[in-house]
């Protein structure tokens, strides 16, 4: 278990996504282990989310806790299932050499980053769950926590995609390499890192997982990647609405799923409105 956490830690630190590491065209990590750790982290956040219902509702309060614990990992799995086919097809259409396997690996790593951030926000969510009576405040706090986690995960995804493309173009035709040689030649990676850092006073450091390196990819490619990310975010948001309740309104009885009505963004707007009134 600890070994797998270390694998995820390598991804978080950016060790797994250095240019030298990506030479094979994919991120190297043990998929099974990281998936398992990711599910565990997602369940931890699910528990934190369900804590509000556990404290505020009478009766079958623990059911909501169990439901949230199960549904939160499910949310990300289903979002991946729904978005992956179209993402992959567009990826192939624009001529990226990213194979289905390495695209899936990449998505696993990105979701791993999201869950690590979400689980680390868990203690704050539990603290507010325990001390707050307002249901709307809790739903908004959870939306904010998940948004932060999601954005960081997707930023990781974009940056890593960019690096993968950079390596491919370097290997294939070398058209995007500027004169000062931004991409490290395999033999001497160390001195080039210096030039990659955007700010001059920064000492040569290994780049983090979120650093942007090298030249901009062709606008067409980067536009497709950005659409990828947007689609993933929108599907994730709506999926969370379909799978609701996660927090459990104390005024309503427990159900596994609620009636089909409204959508995620309307609901957030309404929660904000009723909090302000």
């Amino acid at each position: 278990m600890l070994r797998w956490f270390k694998q995820l830690d390598r991804i978080l630190r950016g060790d797994a996504t250095r240019l030298e590491q990506l030479q094979q065209g994919q991120i190297e990590f043990s998929v099974g282990g990281v998936v398992l750790v990711t599910v565990v982290l997602a369940m931890i956040y699910g528990v934190c989310m369900g804590a509000f219902a556990m404290i505020r509702t009478s009766g079958e309060a623990y059911m909501q806790l169990i439901a949230s614990t199960v549904k939160f990992p499910l949310l990300f799995f289903l979002t991946l299932v729904v978005t992956f086919p179209s993402l992959y097809v567009f990826n192939a259409l624009i001529g990226s050499r990213l194979s289905a396997g390495s695209a899936l690996r990449l998505m696993t790593a990105a979701i791993g980053v999201m869950m690590a951030v979400a689980a680390s926000l868990g203690p704050i969510v539990v603290f507010f769950s325990v001390s707050t009576t307002s249901y709307h405040f809790m739903s908004l706090l959870n939306v904010v926590a998940c948004t932060v986690a999601g954005l960081l995960g997707l930023a990781f995804l974009l940056r890593t995609l960019h690096r993968l493309v950079l390596i491919q173009t370097y290997e294939e035709e070398k058209p995007y390499i500027p004169t000062n040689n931004t991409l490290p030649p395999e033999s001497a990676p160390a001195p080039v890192e210096e030039q990659m850092d955007s700010t001059p006073q920064e000492k040569p450091l290994p780049a983090s997982a979120l650093d942007f390196m090298g030249p901009q990819p062709i606008p067409r490619v980067s536009r497709v990647f950005k659409t990828w990310v947007l689609v993933f975010a929108l599907v994730g948001a709506q999926m969370s609405w379909i799978l609701r309740p996660f927090i459990g309104n104390p005024a309503q009885p427990f159900t596994w799923f609620r009636e089909r009505e409204s959508n995620f963004f309307m609901a957030v707007f309404k929660a904000l409105q009723s909090l302000l009134n």
């Binding site: 980053v113 951030v117 926000l121 203690p123 603290f127 990781f156 780049a207």
Partner: peptide
């Protein structure tokens, strides 16, 4: 401090400042 620490730790890690 202890409630805020986990998220700050993860954020530092992602930013490459571990």
């Amino acid at each position: 401090f202890f409630l805020s620490l986990p998220s700050f730790f993860v954020l530092n890690t992602i930013a490459g400042l571990r």
